[in-house]
């Protein structure tokens, strides 16, 4: 596969958000070892919201979330995350959609 360098943060920079400070709409439940489902989110979240900590846990910074619901569906069976829509009016505000 040819190497293409991409920075998702640069893509998200184009978008408009209304961040609900201090009230993340997605929370990763405490864990020592992530399940395969949870670990997969580090790659497949289209907004790159998930990352690994130095000690191997998966954490989330949902400010750039596009509210697609992929992580919710992938982790529905394992229950690794708590997922809600942001409060009304907050979150991604698509200019074009």
């Amino acid at each position: 596969m040819q190497e293409i360098s991409i920075k998702v943060e640069e893509k998200l920079y184009q978008n408009r958000y209304m961040v609900d400070e201090g009230r993340p709409h997605i929370v990763v439940k405490p864990h020592t070892q992530p399940t395969d489902a949870l670990a997969s989110l580090v790659k497949i979240c289209p907004a790159g919201c998930y990352s690994r900590t130095e000690t191997g846990q998966v954490e989330i910074a949902p400010d750039g979330c596009l509210e697609c619901g992929t992580c919710r569906i992938v982790c529905a069976a394992t229950g690794d995350i708590e997922w809600n829509y942001p409060r009304g009016g907050y979150g991604i505000l698509f200019k074009f959609g």
């Binding site: 293409i4 998702v8 893509k11 997969s40 497949i44 992938v74």
Partner: peptide, 15 residues
């Protein structure tokens, strides 16, 4: 398929 192949969606779009 994304979870199985572990492909970054943004990479796919770029490709």
């Amino acid at each position: 398929d994304f979870t199985e192949a572990q492909v970054r969606p943004a990479f796919l779009l770029e490709k």
